[in-house]
Design a protein around this nucleic acid. Structure first.
Lengths: 141, 141
DNA sequence: TTTTTTGCAAACCTTTTGCAAGCTG
DNA sequence: CAGCTTGCAAAAGGTTTGCAAAAAA
């Protein structure tokens, strides 16, 4: 396994996962992606770095990395799952129903309230999945 | 089409939809369900009322009713979509990752904050999909 | 060398769809 | 009666899996 210097190699080691070319390529791809690509899109992008990667491996690796907490799966309606590198702080997503664009919402306040609700019910939060489907309002003159 | 007295018949009329035995049966089923069943489960329950209903119709009807705003689709991870009669007030869902149980969270405050965030970005909310995956904490003595 | 990971292709599962027949308004 | 709705069976689309070969530790 190449290039121990990479931050991804380290992340994989810390997660107790074997360091493979494919996993590193996938993490690198996801790190460069500012949008929220789905498996198919990730597949295309990963192949630019390593054209040996198969779609099956993309799916398998995404699940593995999700389980390890390195990647976050976003489950929206009527579309394949999207993915992102686990963000420093949890946030909600606003999905533009017309363009499909995803905007990340700052939500410390939302997080605090949710944390509180869960606490009160005796639950600890495992993960959060929040998206608001919304439509751009005509600009106010 | 039977029994005009039913509240469901009226709801369908108001939505501008044709009143069919299948739609009424599906609405009745969903109204009786306190859990959040998926299409397959709804299919089984509807057949208790009207054994002519097909699974295809369950899916088609759910989509139709969703579009009409009478039904809400809940998209969780790694499982088929679940449905509920459109609730009086929007709420978040807490999903017990061990049991699969879904708990509805009171969230006027969350709603207000989200409304605010969307407003500020110039968006109007179309629908909300929020679920928190959580695990029961051991009871504190 | 042992064990895990991968590629390929086939399978899976949920959801959608074409079509002819049956209802609704 | 015109047009929407349904049942059936087949198809679609995203995701998973069995297996033998390849790579990691």
């Amino acid at each position: 396994m190449p290039n121990d210097s990479s931050e991804f190699v380290q992340a994989l080691r810390e997660a107790g996962l074997k360091v493979t070319q494919q996993r590193v390529a996938l993490l690198a791809t996801l790190m460069e992606s500012t949008d929220h690509p789905n498996a198919e899109e990730i597949f295309v992008r990963v192949r630019a770095l390593d054209d040996s990667v198969s779609l099956a491996t993309v799916y398998r690796t995404l699940s593995t990395l999700e389980e390890a907490g390195l990647v976050q799966r976003l489950t929206f309606e009527n579309e394949p799952a999207r993915f992102e590198i686990t963000p420093a702080s949890q946030h909600d997503h606003l999905v533009d129903v017309d363009s499909g664009e995803v905007i990340e919402l700052p939500s410390e306040e939302l997080n605090r309230i949710r944390q509180d609700l869960a606490d009160r019910l005796g639950y600890e939060i495992v993960s959060l999945h929040s998206f608001i489907r919304a439509r751009k309002k005509p600009a106010v003159s």
